[in-house]
Simulated assay, not measured.
Amino acid sequence: MVADSEVDLLGAAVSYGWQATDEEAPGEEVVNVGVADEAEDTVVIDVDEVRGWLSHAGRAVPVAAALNVWNLATDVAYSRGWVRSDRGYWADRAYDKLFAANVPWALGLAAYRPRWTSQELTALRRIEGEAVGLLRTTFTGV
Rank of each mutant, 00 (worst) to 15 (best):
A13Q: 06
R113M: 04
T74S: 13
G27E: 11
V132T: 11
L121W: 03
G11T: 10
F139D: 08
Q19W: 00
G27S: 12
V69L: 12
D46V: 04
V47A: 11
R136G: 08
V35K: 12
L9R: 06
P114L: 05
R59I: 00
V61T: 07
E130D: 15
S118H: 12
L109D: 07
E120K: 04
W90S: 09
R51A: 15
E49C: 08
S79F: 05
N71G: 04
G52Y: 02
P62I: 04
S15V: 09
T138L: 10
G81C: 09
V35L: 13
F99P: 00
W90M: 07
D22T: 14
V69R: 01
G141N: 09
V43C: 08
T117C: 07
T140Y: 11
A91D: 06
N32G: 04
V7N: 09
L124W: 03
G133Y: 05
N68D: 14
A101I: 05
A39K: 14
G133L: 08
A36Y: 01
L121N: 05
M1T: 12
V76Y: 03
E128V: 00
E130Y: 06
W82D: 13
A131N: 07
Q119D: 15
A12H: 10
H56D: 15
L107G: 04
V142L: 13
K97S: 01
G88D: 05
A57I: 08
R93W: 01
P62N: 12
L124D: 02
